[in-house]
């Protein structure tokens, strides 16, 4: 089987080879994400029983928690790609990092938003300086800085190297920031949105994990689609892109 050879995976790191592969994969991930969203939301909102304490308001957890997981995960993956791109000078890795940044920022923003919506019935206020919300706010700042730096530098190669270095710095800092915010929070006896108070029925677990996979697949589908246009933009002078454009852009 071709798929088990090292050469097969190595050639995938070439934008030219990856471009059509990404084009073929993206719709499948999008479809899978859509199906899982429907299942997950149905189970979460109609099958799972209400919580005895938080009643129905806890159900936003099914959206909030997967978003929050993914927002953090995307940042780490993005920095990982950036590091690979910086160390081994593979162009595709830095392109993947750029493709993930806007999605990560959006997930973080939605995570904050849903967190605030969950906070209103639980604490009576949309915003409370609890550890998780605060660290997500900082995560949003980090995403913004990453994208702003990449956009501010005109030369695309310099831009991707600079933002990759920032990503590396970020990945060293993420655990420190996370730890310090937790510390700060315990010192000030803050409250926390937590799932620990909710006894998780099996149907709740199913809804949560289904939606986690839905968000994951959605991220992959979007990142693949976006990386395709980044490939075209950055490689627009390459012969294969010119040929592609002449052939009608498929």
């Amino acid at each position: 089987m071709q798929i088990f050879t090292k050469a097969f995976w190595l050639q995938l790191s070439s934008p030219k080879v990856f471009y059509p592969v990404a084009g073929k994969l993206a719709p499948w991930f999008a479809i899978a994400a859509a199906i899982l969203f429907v299942i997950g939301l149905y189970v979460g909102f109609f099958v799972a029983p209400p919580d005895y304490q938080q009643k129905d308001s806890y159900r936003i957890m099914f959206i909030h928690v997967p978003l929050a997981w993914m927002a953090m995960f995307v940042y780490i993956v993005m920095c990982g790609y950036a590091a690979i791109g910086l160390i081994w000078k593979t162009r595709l890795s830095t392109m993947m990092a750029s493709a993930l940044a806007p999605t990560g920022a959006m997930l973080t923003f939605l995570g904050l938003w849903t967190g605030a919506l969950w906070g209103k019935p639980t604490w009576g206020a949309y915003w409370v300086w609890d550890a998780r919300l605060t660290s997500f706010l900082i995560l949003l700042f980090l995403y913004m800085g990453y994208m702003a730096l990449e956009n501010a530098i005109d030369d695309p190669q310099r831009a991707s190297r600079a933002s990759a270095l920032l990503g590396l710095v970020g990945i060293v800092n993420i655990p420190i920031i996370y730890f310090s915010v937790k510390w700060w929070n315990t010192l000030h006896q803050g409250m926390s949105v937590s799932t620990s108070g909710i006894s998780m029925e099996p149907s709740m677990k199913i809804a949560m994990f289904t939606l986690a996979f839905a968000v994951w697949f959605y991220t992959i589908a979007i990142a693949l689609t976006r990386v395709r246009s980044i490939i075209l933009e950055r490689e627009r002078h390459a012969a294969w892109v010119v040929d592609l454009a002449k052939a009608g852009g498929r």
């Binding site: 005109d154 030369d155 695309p156 190669q157 950055r234 627009r236 002078h237």
Partner: peptide
Amino acid sequence: CMRGDRIL
């Protein structure tokens, strides 16, 4: 050498 997307 490449500057921007132009090959110098």
